[in-house]
């Protein structure tokens, strides 16, 4: 397993994409720090990067990597090695490198220029989102043999979670706004990892606004240690569920 992981990581390093990604994040974060004078503004700008760019890069990179190492996997599976080991080493390698890239890219400037607690939350949320979308990418990849189709599916995932879903939620809130919606919106937030990440950050950055009439409901949930635990657990489920599903498919898949 460790040996396989090592080779996979070596593979990823050789493509230099992970390095480019790190460099991009580094430049972006440094740029944000040098343009904005206020830590809360830095958090805001970084939030957009974390919610939009990170999932997109993760999902595409993981898919492309899966297909690039298709032959490697085939070769490995011809050896007396457990299928799960091969699969898990691949997903771990991708997840690890993406998380590392994010941590270095976004975290290094924070070490240099300083950060507050909300920025640490941002780092954590970014890492978790990277893993969620790596898992989703692997799920999409094992579902089809065609690389283009898999990328199509992954992009659909991204568009759905970042755009379409919120549109649906807005629509539902608009239609049913006569009804008490707090519980329902809370459930809807849980069903989308990007939204969940965003709301966790919202609790850090817009506390004052959330103390209003309805906001207080969300604040009392997400603001409490219990609520935080629940929301991070749900994010963990969002990581494990696609990985588990992908592993199941991979186990029986005719490569």
């Amino acid at each position: 397993m460790l040996k396989l992981l090592k080779y996979s990581l070596y593979n990823i390093l050789r493509t230099r994409f992970a390095l480019l990604y790190t460099l991009f994040l580094l430049m972006a974060t440094l740029g944000i720090y040098s343009l904005d004078y206020d830590l809360s503004r830095v958090g805001l700008s970084l939030l957009n990067v974390v919610l939009l760019v990170v999932p997109l890069v993760c999902i595409i990179f993981a898919t492309v990597h899966f297909y690039n190492s298709y032959e490697f996997m085939e070769l490995m599976l011809a050896q007396p090695i457990n299928r799960m080991t091969v699969f898990l080493s691949q997903i771990l390698a991708v997840g690890l490198s993406l998380c590392l890239a994010f941590l270095i890219g976004a975290g290094l400037p924070m070490l240099i220029y300083g950060a507050d607690s909300s920025l640490f939350y941002l780092l954590l949320v970014g890492v978790l989102l990277s893993l969620v979308f790596t898992g989703l990418a692997f799920l999409a990849s094992v579902m089809t043999r065609d690389k283009a189709r898999a990328i199509g599916i992954t992009l659909l995932f991204w568009v759905y979670f970042s755009l379409i879903y919120d549109g649906l939620v807005i629509y539902l809130i608009y239609v049913f706004y006569d009804y008490p919606l707090e519980g329902a919106t809370l459930a809807m937030v849980m069903l989308n990892p990007v939204d969940l990440a965003r709301v966790i950050m919202l609790m850090q950055m817009d506390v004052s606004a959330l103390m209003g009439f309805t906001g207080a409901f969300f604040q009392s949930f997400f603001g409490s240690a219990q609520g935080l635990l629940v929301s991070f657990s749900v994010l963990l489920i969002w990581i494990l569920l696609p990985v588990w599903a992908a592993a199941r498919v991979f186990k029986k898949k005719d490569l």
């Binding site: 919610l51 807005i170 809370l186 939204d195 965003r198 309805t214």
Partner: peptide
Amino acid sequence: ERIPSAIILWRSFMVT
């Protein structure tokens, strides 16, 4: 202002 629950979507890409 009209639908207080909508605050939960603040800072999402759609709303921005």
